[in-house]
Amino acid sequence: MEKIFKGATIFLDRSDINTDEIIPAKYLTEVTKEALKPYLLEDLKLDGFDPKGEALKNARVVVSRQNFGCGSSREHAPWVFEVNDVHTIIAEGYARIFRQNMFNGGMLAIELPKSDIDALFELSAQGIVNIDVDVDGQKIVASVNGVDKSFAFEISEFDKALVKSGGWVEFADERY
């Protein structure tokens, strides 16, 4: 499946969102990614957040705070985003396994400094934010009410290669 790194953005204003919140363990008995779809962020503890709401349904990009995806190694967490067409997460920092799982599946876990994340959250106060990621140019453009603001980001050569080749299985299979 072609990955798409742009679209309406949902803002999750909390650090340490863990993989049990993203996809509770009781759904780990599913053996297909598609079956996870209805349960995205079902147990997220965040005031005002509705896992069944429009904002999440329309979201293609997630912006969050520090240590996103901590806890269990379950790749079901990136998958539940993937099958809900969210292929881009932008945060101040990630748990290692979650970040690697995103890139291993050819998706983006972009890290931005706190000041940029703060700036993105400020934009969210003005209306629906659309984000477009240029992986080669290492640039994010956030648009709200017709005004654009851009942010540069760092990505390792390896992570970029994983995104380009569609993931780690493809990359490793060619090389080892």
């Binding site: 190694s73 379950r74 790749e75 990136p78 396994i97 979650f98 690697q100 799982n101 291993n104 599946g105 390792s156 390896f158 993931g167 780690w168 299985v169 490793a172 299979d173 080892y176």
Partner: peptide, 20 residues
Amino acid sequence: AGVGTTDLEVGILKGVCAFR
């Protein structure tokens, strides 16, 4: 190290894993 399913899959198939 704990890894996700994709790393596990490559580990099963090729016996390698990538780390920083």
